[in-house]
């Protein structure tokens, strides 16, 4: 699914809206009113679009890029959620330690902490995959739980806010908050980071030998090892760690740009939305920028749909699921057709 995958992706996006309309009708909701509320919540004005859709899209895009990178190499990293949370926890810890002493410059070590912690969360599964051939699906899911409980402990223990009432950390220093990109909105510099990472990943895949090796590894590991003389074990491990690092970055950005503190439910399943985003984009980094924004808009719209039209916001996960399922079925069909043709 290379650039040709764009057409089906656009079709899928339209399909999503159609599925949504059908689901709403089945649920006995006023379809027009609900869709209207959704559009208003996501894009009533450019300012609303920036403040809700793009802000919500930011962690989804960065995590989606993390998933795309791993999937491109044939690594099924289902642990983006835990890696994101790990990144958020490390970023909060470092940010609270730095305070406002270093000014805005302190943002750099905080983001680095997120990257490193995300990679650390991926390190165990990557090592188990390489040394013992353990399915990364099982291990990344387990690490998700370990991190979840770890954060639950942090926000009730060492990182709990000074009054010791709420299960969350203290707020990070004002100096460390990501600057607002567009005055009058909540759109923060994290969105710019997401764009930069997306473009960088695109150039990596298209223009560098390393990116080519990753694509070969994903397309055919045996050929990569034999014909390409690629050290597939080492390359897989490296890609896995970078995927974790990117997911960790998403967590750090979310803390510095939006939540400003660490708490239990910091991620409402970004790691899973990321899978939908990556697949819908055909694992294409620039595509992820678009599909991530699209799902960010759906999530912003769903919130307002719940508020104004009484439609449960969880409906969006049914949509995400139908997106993923349609794409994998379509892809499996393509592959079988290719196999028959060959």
């Amino acid at each position: 699914m290379r650039p040709r995958g764009w057409l089906p992706a656009a079709g899928a996006a339209l399909g999503v809206v159609a599925v949504l309309a059908v689901l709403l009708a089945l649920g006995g909701f006023d379809v027009g009113a609900a869709l209207g509320a959704m559009v208003r919540g996501a894009a009533a004005s450019p300012a609303v679009f920036a403040s809700s859709t793009l802000v919500r899209a930011t962690p989804i895009i960065i995590a989606g890029l993390a998933v795309s990178l791993a999937f491109r190499a044939g690594i099924l990293n289902i642990g983006a959620d835990g890696q994101l949370l790990g990144g958020a926890a490390a970023a909060t810890t470092v940010a609270l330690a730095i305070g406002d002493g270093a000014g805005a410059l302190g943002i750099v070590p905080v983001l680095l902490a997120g990257l490193v912690a995300g990679a650390a969360c991926a390190a165990g599964p990557a090592w188990l995959r390489r040394r013992h051939g353990v399915l990364e699906v099982i291990t990344t899911i387990m690490v998700n739980f370990v991190v979840l409980h770890g954060v639950s402990w942090l926000v009730r223990g060492p990182l709990q806010e000074p009054t010791r009432v709420l299960p969350q950390s203290a707020s990070i220093a004002r100096a460390l908050e990501l600057p607002v990109l567009v005055p009058g909105t909540r759109l923060h510099a994290g969105f710019a980071i997401a764009i930069v990472v997306g473009v960088a990943l695109h150039l990596f895949f298209r223009r560098t030998a390393g990116g080519f090796r990753v694509r070969v590894l994903g397309a055919n590991p045996a050929a990569a090892a034999v014909a390409g003389r690629i050290d597939t074990a080492q390359l897989s491990t490296r890609v896995f760690l970078w995927s974790g690092a990117l997911a960790g970055l998403a967590g750090a950005v979310q803390v510095l740009g939006v939540t400003r503190a660490l708490y239990d439910n910091l991620s409402p399943g970004y790691g899973f939305t990321a899978i939908a985003v990556a697949l819908l984009a055909g694992l294409h980094p620039l595509g992820v920028l678009v599909t991530g924004t699209f799902l960010g808009g759906l999530s912003a719209g769903a919130a307002s749909m719940q508020r104004d039209a009484g439609v449960p916001a969880v409906l969006v996960s049914v949509l995400e699921a139908s997106v993923i399922l349609s794409v994998v079925v379509w892809r499996a069909r393509q592959q079988r057709l290719l196999a028959v043709a060959a």
Binding site: V318, E320, A321, L325, V328, V329, R336
Partner: peptide
């Protein structure tokens, strides 16, 4: 039947079931 990937399908099924039961 459609022979799609097991892991991604399973993840999506879970996501969809969360949403469907929640609605």
């Amino acid at each position: 039947t459609a022979r799609a990937d097991q892991i991604i399908t399973g993840t999506a099924i879970t996501l969809g079931a969360y949403g469907a039961t929640g609605v």
